[in-house]
Write a protein that binds this DNA or RNA. Structure first.
Lengths: 201, 201, 201, 201
DNA sequence: TGTTAACCGAGACGGTACGTCGAGTCTTGGC
DNA sequence: GCCAAGACTCGACGTACCGTCTCGGTTAACA
């Protein structure tokens, strides 16, 4: 999606159509996976011409990435947790994330979109930035809220915390070799805490 | 690929050809990713007819999975580390793995194959099993070698260790938002240790 | 194009625009043929919105037919010849027609419009009628002007004369297998005369 | 269609398929005209993949021209007439041609294919050559068979005869303003004869 | 030493989705 | 109400790749 700086001559873009396309895209990915997503089917289900899709997204990957971003949009994430301890907040955040991921739809979407776009591809970059930034910010805020209560280990960086929390969840999601349940989430948070804080009692 | 003992009349299959196909497949995935791999191109580069490929693999996914498995085969992994401490061994293992992953080729291959096959798809299952089992076994062996020196935290399970070690590495690989360097690996190992052992000094 | 006397509320239609559209249409057909004519291009070249075109012509064929009729309009044909003999007049008429046809533009236009509309299609009918009637009338007038000088063969009909004169010219035009020159025209007239008059010396 | 000088490696071209495509093409043009011919429909009706059509013909026009040529192939024309007089032979030939043309199918086909191809286009050239040559040859042979019986007018050329005979028939066919009946054909032959022979009694 | 059947490269095939293109319609804001 | 701009639906286009098939030709074990 390019920044809309067109002069307002001509028929304006139909917002309802735009949103419908993204919704249908999400639904279809969830139903049958990224690889089996057909642009024709998106168009038909959204009651839209194929051209209208290609007018705004250059290809399947771009369409799906924007659909994903809409679905994982910050406004649709839970509010920042307001617990009493760092541990409580991290647990709440991690639980929310794991719930969000723990569906076949999410697995299909994430793995498909990620894999469809090369590392060098700019279309993935925007996804990465927005997706990661949101989560990194959430964690950063939690840590800063509790910075007076805990003593952060020197040399600990936030990026690492993000990876430690998300990485194992994604790994289970992709490899599908173990449950993404409460116990697992709790263990992850425990790991992050032990790495992050000097002594958090 | 099943090994069927055909009656040995007629010309036997050419083993060199079989290997060449896998090599070319690997090379092409590394070059341009799984999604852009063309069977025709594999055939041409291997100097082989398309039929010869389909004689032994039912489709693109199967071919790629076998190619990947050949590349990540245990025999091509480093020998089990023989360090003095649990930390040393984990570090050596993690370093080896990260080196193995830290190329665009590996990223393309893993993400492509993973995403190409749905969760329910059996063709991925074998890859997952073999891939995971190998690594899980390596970690299990390391822990058991040192079980007398350290006191494992109760309730700690190995699957979790696998996820904690691999998950973040994969996550960085896929999202490409930070380096997969020695410092990162070291931090990961530290995290696993703190989670695994009661007090390991 | 119907001439309806709209109630004169609002801005009256721009006659210059109407004419410009037809001119551009003619020019584009001449340049690149009927099949490659694009309505968008007509609109752009005429500095006009597409809707303005469709307001007055229902589709591409109608637009082109009206453009053609304007170009081949009787008022743009030469005056009726006023020679001394039937032969002279026929020659002059035939020469005029052949000159009119003998350009790539004319070929593109005629063949395109003809072929675009099925036999049953009414939009062609008007073109045919007007186009043919004009020419048939010209020939009829020539014959009647000289009816006292020559002795028309019994059973000779005018339609046949039209076909004999125009048919071969069109045929050469379409098949492009021989020149549409003076000698050819002369031969045609000779043929018509021999078929039409008993003894015309 | 290119001359088949490929070395005979690989699966040979399926002749039945090739023929079926041409037949279906002819049928569809006859049914609904050239402009409404859909390649997809040809493929479906012929039980053939679209690619197979495009492998052998570059576009709709080429396909139709070859289909036409097959339909109007000399081997499918009547044998050369063997009458007693030049007039009889010409009449028989002209009748045969008019019968061949005098169907909506033929009209659709000819007008569509002719108009679709520009004058400069090579694909039409081959059609013209083969189509015209066949007919010119037929007329030439008739005249030469009777050259001892009649006295050809000096300066009369065969190309003119072809145009005089075919031109009016095509003109009626295209403009659809009069019947293509026996009387018309007879009049045409009469015209040709009067132009061609000095005194043919 | 010849038979013979599986192997092999080449490439045509049916099928399915792609991304593009143009016709004709609809919807703005400006005149 | 007319107009330019341009987004919209629809449907065909010509291309690309998949996985299958069918040729002629090759090759090694068996007879």
């Amino acid at each position: 999606m390019t920044t809309e700086e067109k002069c307002s001559r001509g028929r304006p873009r139909c917002a309802k159509t735009h949103h419908a396309i993204l919704q249908v895209t999400l639904a279809l990915i969830a139903e049958q996976g990224y690889a089996d997503l057909r642009i024709d089917e998106v168009a038909k289900r959204a009651g839209v011409g194929k051209q209208t899709i290609y007018r705004w997204w250059n290809n399947k990957a771009e369409l799906c990435i924007e659909a994903l971003l809409e679905d994982f949009h910050p406004t649709r994430l839970p509010d920042n947790p307001q617990g009493n301890t760092l541990r409580d907040d991290l647990l709440e955040l991690a639980s929310a994330i794991s719930c969000r991921l723990n569906t076949p739809a999410a697995r299909n979407m994430l793995v498909g979109v990620i894999s469809a776009s090369r590392v060098e591809d700019g279309s993935l970059a925007s996804f990465r930035l927005q997706f990661l930034d949101t989560r990194r910010e959430a964690i950063r805020e939690i840590f800063s809220r509790h910075e007076n209560n805990v003593h952060l280990r020197s040399g600990f960086d936030l990026e690492l915390a993000v990876d430690l929390l998300h990485g194992p969840m994604w790994y289970r999601l992709l490899m599908d070799h173990g449950p993404l349940d409460e116990a697992f989430v709790r263990a992850l948070v425990e790991g992050v805490l032990r790495l992050a804080v000097e002594e958090e009692r």
